[in-house]
Every structure is written in C-alpha cells, then in structure tokens.
Design a protein around this nucleic acid. Sequence first.
DNA 1: TGAAATGTTGGGGCG
DNA 2: ACGCCCCAACATTTC
Length: 477
Amino acid sequence: MPTLSPIIVWFRRDLRLADNPALREAVDRGAPVVPVYIHAPEEEAPWSPGGASQWWLHHALARLAESLEQRGSRLIVRRGPSEKALLDLARETGATAVCWNRLYDPGTLERDKAVKLALRASGIEAFSRNAALLFEPWTIQTGTGDPYKVFTPFWRRCLQETPPPHPIAKPHRVPAPAAWPESVPLGELGLLPAIKWDAGFCDAWTPGEDGAHASLRRFAGEHAAAYGNTRNRPDLAGTSRLSPHLHFGEIGPRQVWHTVARDGPLSEGVRTFLAEIGWREFAHHLLFHYPRTTHEPLRPEFSAFPWRTAERDLAAWQQGRTGYPIVDAGMRELWATGWMHNRVRMIVASFLVKHLLLPWNDGAAWFWDTLVDADLAANTLGWQWSAGCGADAAPYFRVFNPILQGAKFDPKGEYVRRWVPEIAALPGRHLFAPWEAPAGVLDEARVRLGTTYPHPLVEHPEGRARALAAFETIRKN
DNA sequence: TGAAATGTTGGGGCG
DNA sequence: ACGCCCCAACATTTC
C-alpha cells in the first residue's frame, strides 16, 4: 500500500472527537492526520473572544490535546494568520489536503472562504463539513424561499425535515505523521487571566468533551422530563448548562438531539428542551442570512431609537448595583461564574434597554466579554429580541417588572440571597423591592439603603413609563 | 418567553 | 325576600 500524504484537520469551534465529520473523514482516508488549532483572534475582530471565553478555550484545547494523545496523535497549536499557518503546515508536513467543520458567523465565514481559495490556488485540497448545526441555514426556507423570521413556523418546519443523522463515533486511533511539526505551547497563547479571577469559573465548570457529556447525562437523566416546569427557576439546577460546551463544539446539537429524543413519543419537558436547541439553530440561521444584525437592528425603524448615554448607569448594571435584587443577583452570577440563568438574562436585558434606556449593543458587548458561552448568533438574537428590534421580538410594550419576575421565578428568594448576601436577612415579601420595606424591617435586616445596598436606579413605574414613551417615538403607523 | 388597567361576574354581608 | 354594595377572582384590553 503506497504511503498517503498527510491530511490536516483544522480544529476551530468543534473541539471534540465524537460526531466530528471532518475528523472522521480524514481518519477514514487512512492517511496520517495532522490536527491543528490556529490562534488568530484578530481575524474575528471586532468579535474576538472575550476574557471568559478565552478562559474556557484554554481548558477546552488542553482537554482536546489530551484525548488526541490517548489516540496516538497530538494537537499542533500555531498562531495566525490562519491562511499562512495552514500553508506553512502543509509545506512542513507534506500534507496535500486540509479539512474543517464550518462556522457560520459573518467574520469567520469570509475568512474561511478566502482560506479555501488560497489553499486550492496552492494545489491543496480543501473541504468543509457541518458539525455545528442540525440543518444547513440555506435549506430551511419559507414557501416563498425567504428565511424564517418567526421562531414557531421555523421550528415546525425543522421538525418536518428528515431528522438529523445519528452522531458519528469517535475514531479509535488517529494515525500520526512520520514526524510531528513544531507546536506553540498552549500557555504561551495567553488565554488564562493574568490576575486570578477564575476561581468561581473552576468551581462551576468542567470544560472539554468529557465535561460536556457529563452535563448532558446529568440533564437527560434527572432534569429533562421536568424541564417545562423547572427551566425558569434560577434557584434550581433545572437547565442543561450545555451552552458553553455547544459554543465550543465540545458536543454538537445532533448528539444532544439523539440523546434526549430517543425513539417514541417525547415528553413535554423534552419537547420544550428541544425547542431551546431550536432557538440556538434559529439564531445561527438568522445570523447567516442577516449578518449585519450583530451591530444593526433587524427592524430598521429602531435606528432612530432615542437611547440614553449614561456611563454610571451602565457601570452600575455591569457591577450588579442597580438596586433591583433580581437584576443584581444575575449580574453578579455572571461576573463570578461566566454564566447567567436564561430567565435572569431576559430580566437584566429588559432592565438595561427599557428601565435604563441604554443601547442593547452595550449589553451585548458586556455579555460578550463576560459569558463563557458568548456566541455571536445567540447573543445577537437574544439582545435584539429583548430590545424589541429583532426577529420574533418581544413587542416594545413588554416591560418586565423586575420585582414581580423575581418573586415569581425565585419564590423562596434563594437565588437572590446567594448572590446579594447583604440583603439576605430581609423577609421574602420585601426581598425583591427593599426600598419599599418599612424602616424597622430594614433595620432588623441590617440593610441601610444607599450605604450597604443601593437605592433603585429608577423606580419601576417611572422607568416603565419612560420606556413606553421612548418606544412611542419610533412606532410605525 | 408581560404588566397594568379596565371590565365582568358572583358570593356574601347587610339593611 | 330583596336590592345594594363590596370585593375577590377571573377575563379582556391596552400599553
């Protein structure tokens, strides 16, 4: 049998061995495989990974390298530009082919298109596969051939499709090249924080493919059936917490689908959970079709929206000092763990864009830097949805009442007391609006408003009225 | 995957 | 017995 020339597998945000079509196809050729990760954050600007994402990426790459080593291989790490790194690596190893799994956000899409052309121009075979989505964005269309802009018909249409294929197994061995090319030590990429702020992250997360499957097993076994009732409760562990694993491709949506949707009728909870996977899919399809929405409202009338500028209010929101306990709890959970429960994300987002009238872009930028699951498609959809300027958006007059939302979804106050300990001694009926508590109750709980805990930045009725008035100015007739 | 204002209904206290 | 009022509970509409 003649010696085949090596094939390069370019890992990006598909940091797994199972259900990895590019890796599987490379291995199946029987040729030596050169796995590579190329660090090129500048190519993703202005959406280069934020601090929290970089922390996750470091650990995910370390785990991927380990599991490749267990299969007789390695992970080569190089620095960008990606095109040059791949051409160099092909020359050094004698590789005549490069393959990868597709990404669909605008910056990466353009970059990959150029890389593919450059490789082919140099006589190198280049191909890509789908690992990140259930369906390719260009295959899900309305009857008129347009992209869906409303979730429910979009997801109904997806469910009518041929179900996504069963996941591909991990390769048992990954054939090594005759000699290994040089690799940059992972630590030299500078992904870990210089000052040690990541203790809470280490407690909360296990990045990597094994951690992803552990999360999925826990959720599918203990929580999926009840998901419809528990998913809105930030005080419970009722959600899957798969978002960062999905973002970095440590697990793929096909694997999630086939784990929870085994044959037979789906429980209510599983159907609801799959709809959340559907929202992820919807976000990625939308960004593919509307790439400008990362920075522009999908609804053009919102370009004239009278957003405020208020640095101090923005800082108070970021630091969890708004005076609304449910908002502050969420922002502090985010800062400490790199994650926030989705119900609370909706509450804090509504508060920023409606009560504070600050641009959704400011909220998106903060989430981008602080979330371990920061994902351009999901972040864009979520913020435009909250601001009312996006696809299937909440109507502009939908203003969450942060007091009622807190009491409704954190009924025992455990979530607020955990993240806002300075008011933990307040009784339940005053926990979500401390400024309305009688002076004696505040004294008893050792809360001094304006000193130990802030006054509300704006009172709810006034904030609500101001938001409605602002939205009225751009309302179309 | 809203909240608040407004409208409707019906039980019960009371003269 | 009856009308009246109050108000909780629920429904509808409006933002």
